[in-house]
Each structure stands twice: as C-alpha cells, then as structure tokens.
C-alpha cells in the first residue's frame, strides 16, 4: 500500500465540509412533515394545456408546468400514446417508446425532404470533426462501410443468380 501522507495543507479547503452528522443511515433530506400531507400542497398556477401532453399513469394529472417541445405526431405519436397506457413500472411503457423514437427518426428524414431539405447526414454526425481530429478513424469507418456493403451486395447478387 502506498504511503499515506497525512499533511493535506497543499489541498485548499481540505476537510472544510467534513460533517460527522452526515451519516448514510440518516437520509439527507430536510424533514418538514410535508410528505404526510400527501398530494395536498398548494399547487402553483397551472400552465394552460394547448397541446397534447401525455402523462404518466402513476399520477392523477398533468404537472403545473410542462415542456411544449415536439408534441406526439404521426406513427411515432400513435406508438407513444399506446405506451402511455402503461405505468412506468411496465416494459410495455418503455419498449414501445424506444421503438417510437426509432420510427421518429425516419419521420424526421421524411419531414426534412418534404420541406425540400436534404439532410447532410455526414455533417450531422460530426464527421467534419472526425476528419480533422481522427482522420485514420474516418478512413476505417469508410473502408468498413464499403466492405460491408460490397459483401452484402455480392451475397444478394449471388442469391438472386441462383434463383
């Protein structure tokens, strides 16, 4: 074992926040008794609900404030609505949400194209930075992609010939 040097004067503030009363068996929370009033706190004023907000089945209502980014839409939205029928305790809540996220990526590309924008996936993936800071890595990525696509192509072509 390394030698313990017991002089900590070189560390500014050493031990300054040491608190013998901070015992793990004594949870760090300020007991106010409020939790025994259950849900009966004075709620803040409520943000008007003008968009679709999905809410967890583990609470009775929508919170006093909420985010308004990207309300559910399209097929991914339908999957999200389905997911929100299940509590946070269920896989049937989280797994469909992950699926919806992936469907949403395709919807995002379709949306871009509809608006006449061809997404520059190379740039979105930060490959400009990869080229600058890790050119070897980028070359490897490209080689692997080319190799995988040509092998897949060869296999598919072989299969279709046999038929």
């Amino acid at each position: 074992m390394e030698n313990l040097n017991n002089d900590y004067t070189h560390i500014k503030g050493w031990g300054i926040d040491a608190d013998p009363k901070n015992e793990p068996t004594y949870p760090m929370k300020k007991y106010t008794g409020d939790d025994h009033k259950r849900l009966n706190w004075d709620r803040p004023p409520l943000q008007p609900v003008n968009i679709e907000v999905l809410h967890s089945t583990e609470r009775p209502n929508i919170t006093a404030v909420f985010g308004t980014s990207t309300p559910p839409s399209g097929l991914s939205g339908a999957i999200r609505r389905y997911a929100f029928q299940f509590s946070e305790n269920q896989y049937m809540h989280w797994l469909p949400l992950l699926l919806a996220d992936r469907v949403n990526v395709v919807e995002g590309i379709v949306d871009d194209l509809k608006r006449g924008h061809i997404p520059n996936i190379f740039a979105e993936r930060g490959m400009k930075a990869e080229l600058k800071h890790n050119p070897k890595g980028l070359a490897k990525r490209i080689l692997v992609t080319v190799a995988v696509t040509s092998i897949a192509y060869a296999i598919l072509k072989g299969k279709s010939k046999k038929r």
Partner: peptide
Amino acid sequence: CGTCAFCKQELYGNCHESNPQAT
C-alpha cells in the same frame, strides 16, 4: 416548483410539479 412536498425538503431534483410524463 418550490412548493411541492419534495421541493420543500430541498429535493429540488425530485420536484413533483415539473414532469407530467414520468413520476
């Protein structure tokens, strides 16, 4: 929110009035 039971206990990372989607 500063007013729910959790915020009153200074558990500001656990507010009950700021996230409808998950408790």
